[in-house]
Design a binder for these strands. Structure first.
Lengths: 199, 199
DNA sequence: GGAGTTACTTTACACAATGTCAAGTGGAAA
DNA sequence: TTTCCACTTGACATTGTGTAAAGTAACTCC
């Protein structure tokens, strides 16, 4: 963060982002990123001491550009728990494909790198907060299905909204993005809302 | 398969299995496996030309020892769709922790190795078959929730029973194995069974 | 305008892990 | 006794990450 020209830093982050999205997180080397950014491999290491640092910075960079926080926060203004649930599923669910490549790389890195794991866990924590807010609202309205506590409902909803589940349903099962969003809303209602009004 | 003493092969497979389970799939090198098996690193390469081959063989070896097929098939003898659902969730859900370490390694390998990907996809296909059989039975009984088709129900159930979802709920959320099984049964009923009798 | 600073390039190398190669060994079978 | 088999030993190629050090071009400050 301290050393180097911010313009070069941005060039590197942009190249990293672009390549990771294009390759869906796979087989993107430091040298590929350097070449694509039009700088030497060592310039990358001047800005980001390790691959993990670069992946983490790329994640934060995308968050900033795409303004995730604001997008997720929007769901908080919904009036009812049901609306809040839908709004959050839309906000996060539609964000996943935009970060999928980088997320994949970061998840893979998490297996061996603690800093990467912290960054990803932090991200998941933010999603959990959104989930919990929706589930808590349902509970206050007396609408939460009796089968689950607030915490359990949060666990289940965030599992449903995990990148891994998104990946399985869209990429492996062939669901379209729109279908994934609609279906996830239906599932969340079936699971979390008492009386279960369905689709 | 052709060359080498079958006893040595088994020693290697056993060491591989043991180490992968202990390390939960992370940071297990060919040399670690060789040392643990009491053979030279090159002996491992004589039996398994690549790391991917060894992981694949280890997966098959565990399946054989643990007799997965028989365990999964057992659910097919259940009378009703609901019972079939429960039996399959128990059979597969309780198998996951037994293969988790090797599964993790194989999934990681799948990112870069086509043969590993084929092996893992094949495994997932077997799970899907079990899921589909249960969902189809529900449908024939007129019990399948109207929100989902057989294929969609299969997609959802297999997502719920994925290793990744198991990992998230047990390891990240702290659910016990037993709780995971019971909760997954409740979820499957909420999602798939019309009228939704609950827990 | 010369000295120093900054940001980057170039080149070289250390290191870890996979995978290859070839010569050697020890025991069992012909 | 010779031959073969299964394995060992040790050397090496390759790929990717990360480090180190010298060089360069532009810009800044007296």
């Amino acid at each position: 963060m301290s050393s180097g020209n911010p313009k070069t830093r941005k060039k590197i982050l942009h190249a990293s982002w672009q390549l990771l999205e294009a390759a869906q997180g796979r087989e993107v080397r430091m040298s590929d990123i350097a070449r694509n950014a039009g700088v030497s491999r060592q310039a990358v290491y001047l800005h980001f001491p390790t691959r993990s640092d670069l992946l983490i910075a790329t994640t934060h960079h995308i968050d900033e550009v795409k303004n995730v926080d604001a997008r997720l926060a929007k769901s908080r203004s919904a009036a009812t728990g049901m609306e809040r649930l839908s709004a959050f599923i839309e906000a996060w669910g539609n964000y996943i494909p935009e970060i999928y490549g980088v997320a994949k790389a970061l998840i893979a890195m998490s297996e061996t790198d603690d800093a990467a794991k912290l960054t990803w866990d932090d991200r998941m924590q933010a999603v959990r907060h959104g989930c919990r807010a929706a589930v808590e609202t349902l509970e206050k309205e007396g609408q939460l299905a009796s089968q689950h506590s607030v915490t359990q409902g949060t666990d289940i909803l965030s599992a449903l909204l995990s990148v891994q589940t998104w990946e399985y349903l869209t990429i492996n099962c062939g669901w379209s993005q729109q279908f994934y969003i609609e279906k996830t809303k239906v599932l969340a209602r079936q699971i979390l809302v008492s009386g279960n009004p369905g689709s």
